[in-house]
Write a protein that binds this DNA or RNA. Structure first.
Length: 467
RNA sequence: GGUGCGAUGGCCGAGUGGCUAGGCAGAGGUCUGCAAAACCUCGAACAGCGGUUCAAUUCCGCUUCGCACCUCCA
């Protein structure tokens, strides 16, 4: 398996530190709002990574943090006059619901920042002890970038150029250098009752420190992979490395992986442009989670992805075709014991693995899936697919979908058809026997109105729910 | 201003120094009472301008456009 490592800016063979268990940390949501589809691109990418590692035979230990204390959460909780925990819980719940809708597998641990302040204090104290951090007049603690020569290695940023950073508010901070960043923020009035007591004073953690504390706590001082959106590359991940390696004296992360941003109609998603979508917006519009997931995996994770409604339509049509193939296989395979895979399916499986193990090339992997579908349909058309082979292909699809997570397998004919729909279908069969085509077409429309699709085939009528 | 990424057929999106994915949409055909599905066939692209090369969509340079980061946005 190869992955692109931001640290080296190249694709590398992936080798975990422990041969049978991959430990990785994925930057999770800041819970001050409903996550939008751009956020979910990152989480779906991380899910594909997780599933691919398992596909490769590894056990995984994934940690995803929940950032439940920061400037925004505090400000908005205060505005709504509710305790911080109450405020963030709404969005934590929403996040898990949305993630489930996208068929994102749960991580092993979801640590919340507010539950790990003592661990953060330990790291900060260690940095203070080593002279890598200092306290400021306002009670804040800053990391001293000048004392850490390796700073900038990940983002390839020259410290000396930070001075001219566009967004630096020169006099806003009580720090020695603009490049220095907050490990701890001294308490002020706006924080209200959100504070913790540390040896150097009352306050709250800086943004980056939580990831250092929680990743090392659950994964060890050195672990395999750390992921996030490309925007986290700097300063977040750069700072994480500095403060973590500064405190532990050990290598922090071996592979850094970053996913590119999602665009909407070719431009940045923003509320003012009216192209800002949360997952629930799309679901309310009638789109399925898996259709959205399909669009998100339709591009390689390191490339910018253009999200459009035309792409959602295409996803829907494509998935219906995949489902139809599964239905056909199900009918043919019935309850037969799986036999050997046909050669074309073996080849498709190999092509799939080659693609997904090449830095998670999901578009190529999907192409391999469509290769299998085309060949399989062709074989069935020709009557050349035996039942045990069909069952074997079905098993293969299940394996591939363990990675992709977009195929419906449960949609079999004859399952859970409402009585009135079945009645209409029976009436239609009768009408067809009598060649009463007008009645037949009328009933087909009525069945469609009830949410089902009826198709005529050699074996008779087939009912499928309209997805 | 600095740094980095990108521009592929109607749309979405892989990939490659010569053989050049895939999906959706479209066209024709088979099947069907009609339809749907499926199958067969088809057309269509590598932003622009230079350069390197026997050969460039692929490598290099420039231009244009888009995106990202440059202290808290995945």
């Amino acid at each position: 398996m190869k992955v692109y490592n931001t640290l080296t800016r190249s694709k590398e063979e992936f080798k975990p530190l422990q041969p049978d268990n991959v430990r990785f940390y994925t930057c999770g949501p800041t819970v001050y709002n409903f996550a939008h589809i751009g956020n979910f691109r990152a989480y779906v990418f991380e899910d594909i990574l997780r599933r691919t590692l398992r596909h490769a035979g590894y056990n995984v230990t994934q940690v995803m943090n929940l950032t439940d204390v920061d400037d925004k959460t505090i400000r908005m909780a205060n505005e709504e006059k509710v305790p911080l925990k109450t405020f963030t819980q709404t969005y934590i719940d929403a996040f898990f619901k949305d993630a489930a809708a996208l068929n994102i597998e749960p991580a092993e641990v979801y640590p919340a920042a507010t539950d790990h302040v003592p661990e953060m204090i330990t790291i900060i104290q260690s940095l203070l002890d080593k002279g890598l951090a200092y306290t400021a007049d306002d009670g804040s603690v800053y990391f001293k970038v000048a004392a850490w020569p390796a700073y900038g290695r990940l983002a390839r940023i020259d410290r000396s150029e930070l001075v001219s950073g566009a967004r630096v508010a020169q006099d806003e901070y009580a720090k020695e250098h603009v490049g220095d960043f907050a490990l701890w923020k001294g308490w002020d009035d706006a924080d209200g009752d959100v504070f913790w007591d540390a040896p150097w004073g009352r306050g709250r953690p800086g943004w980056h420190i939580e990831c250092s504390a929680m990743s090392t706590k659950y994964l060890g001082n050195t672990f395999d992979i750390h992921t996030g959106g490309i925007d986290n590359l700097f300063p977040h991940h750069e700072n994480e490395i500095a403060q973590t390696e500064g405190a532990t004296g050990e290598e922090f992360v071996r592979y850094w992986m970053h996913c590119a941003h999602l665009q909407v109609n070719g431009t940045k998603m923003s509320k003012s442009l009216g192209n800002f979508y949360t997952l629930r917006d799309l679901i309310e519009q009638g789109w399925q989670g898996r259709e959205i997931r399909y669009v998100l995996i339709g591009g390689q994770y390191r490339q910018p992805l253009n999200f459009t409604f035309a792409a959602l339509e295409a996803a829907r049509a494509a998935l219906i075709r995949v489902d139809s193939f599964v239905d056909r296989l199900n009918e043919l395979a019935a309850n037969v014991v799986p036999g050997l895979l046909p050669l074309w399916a073996e080849e498709g499986s190999a092509a799939f693995d080659a693609a997904i193990f090449d830095d998670l090339n999901t578009p190529e992997a999907l192409a391999a899936l469509y290769g299998i579908i085309a060949k399989g349909n062709n074989a069935m058309q020709e009557g050349k697919l035996a039942a045990p082979e069909a069952a074997a292909v079905l098993d293969l699809l299940r394996r591939l979908d363990k990675v992709l997570g977009v195929i419906f397998f449960g949609r079999q004919t004859g399952v859970d058809i409402p009585a009135e729909v079945q009645q209409m279908a029976d009436d239609r069969a009768l009408a067809r026997q009598n060649k009463n085509w007008g009645e037949s077409d009328r009933l087909r429309d009525a069945i469609a109105a009830a949410g089902w699709e009826i198709r005529d085939s050699k074996e008779g009528q087939k009912l499928t729910p309209r997805s």
